[in-house]
Amino acid sequence: MLRVVGERVGHLLLVLWVVATLTFLMFRLMPGDPTLNFLSPSFNDETRTALMRSFGLDKPLWEQYLIYLGQLLRGDFGVSFLQNQPVSVLLWDALPNTAVLTVVSLVLAYAIGIVVGAFLAFRRGSVVEAFVIPTALATRAAPEFWLGMLVLAVFAFGLGWFPTGGAVSPGGTIGGVWERLFSADFWWHLCLPALTLTLFLQGLPLLLMRATMLEVLNDEFITMAKMKGLSRWSIVMRHAARNALLPVVTAFALGLGASIGGNVVIETVFAWPGIGRVLVGAVQASDYPLAQGAFIMIAFVLVVMNTVADMAYAWLDPRVSVGARK
């Protein structure tokens, strides 16, 4: 088992190295000179060169790459061009916001999806199904930003129940992670973005749970459970749901990874100060270090969650052995 975990971690590091390299190259190949954004044209050549040197941009590409890798290994993402703060500080500030939004929405979406999906599997061909499935599909297929705008139009501008954006009321301070988690204001601001993301995410677990449940209910061991005269509860919970949950759990772990980076749209619509918005701002401003940092952070979470999904599957399903030999 230990060797297998080691192998997985090795894989993970390899993937991260590739991502780091691609990120590095991608930003160098993008059109637009970052110096244009923060170097005033009125600067003379000397100042310009001095500044370029202070950021290390005068060095050859390979040397920049080596310096970059070396710093990454030490957990140093560099200093933001624009905000003159270490990238790691900016990211650590944004990450909890994204994490809370993602985890809350995913847990809600999967809880609803699993229960409704399992219910629909039992009510196959019913009127309920004819309403719920198109609704679930429509909210899943609708563009996130449109869904977000709709939610804003109704609950913020129309009814005025919730704030229109941001994570704190005007005049408030965002505070540290713990302060945020225990602030009612923060949760109140979270409601609409989380609702939108939940609506957007619920389709997958709902349809997946329904499909796997329908499949499992046809399995011979369910027939056998009925022949054994077991109670409906035992048949559904111990045998059917337990087996049907396997792919859903994997989807959850993958969804967690994907959503961390995939919330860009919702964070923008609701001005939610998370990683996605940091990334969008950084790319627009050609803020290399910050954008790189955000990309690598997102990739890191994604790759780690993939590995977790793999291992969770092996742990839940005894038939899947991690690696060759248990």
């Binding site: 061991f221 054994k228 087996n243 399903d317």
Partner: peptide
């Protein structure tokens, strides 16, 4: 099962895999 029980065709999927 108490008075009348059943042995299935192949035990492959007749036993709950998890």
């Amino acid at each position: 099962w108490r008075r009348m029980s059943f042995i299935p065709q192949t035990a492959m999927n007749a036993l709950d895999p998890v």
